[in-house]
């Protein structure tokens, strides 16, 4: 069985994607507009009290912060706008690094696609 056991995705602690080769870090721009990847679906599951990401024959249960970020990735908003929204909603500051790192990881996993 797949991922019901591979549950939590810690948004802040994940290493940036492997696309950042040593010497040429490829950060995703603040103007990029992430959207849920093709073949993936994000939805809130009442029974699990969590956002889950569904894909062919698999499922990832997202933790609260990952869910908060991904549910804002609608292909319309830029990373900058998403950060702003999150900082306002959660009364926090300095989330750019964390959000960018999560988006990079999620893009590497194909959970998200980025439109510039």
């Amino acid at each position: 069985m797949s991922t019901p056991s591979r549950t939590s995705v810690a948004s802040g602690t994940n290493p940036p994607s492997k696309s950042s080769a040593p010497g040429e870090p490829r950060r995703i721009a603040a103007t990029a507009k992430p959207a849920v990847g093709r073949g993936y679906r994000l939805q809130w599951e009442q029974a699990q009290q969590a956002h889950v990401l569904l894909y062919p024959e698999g499922m990832v249960k997202l933790n609260d912060s990952a869910g908060a970020i991904m549910s804002r990735c609608d292909g319309e908003r830029t990373i900058g706008q998403i950060v702003e929204d999150l900082e306002k909603t959660y009364d926090a500051s300095g989330l750019t690094g964390e959000v960018t790192a999560f988006v990079e990881m999620a893009v590497a996993q194909k959970w998200l696609e980025v439109r510039e």
Binding site: Q43, E45, A47, E57
Partner: peptide
């Protein structure tokens, strides 16, 4: 209703 979400 019980929470099933992946369907084959």
């Amino acid at each position: 209703e019980l929470g099933a979400v992946q369907l084959g």
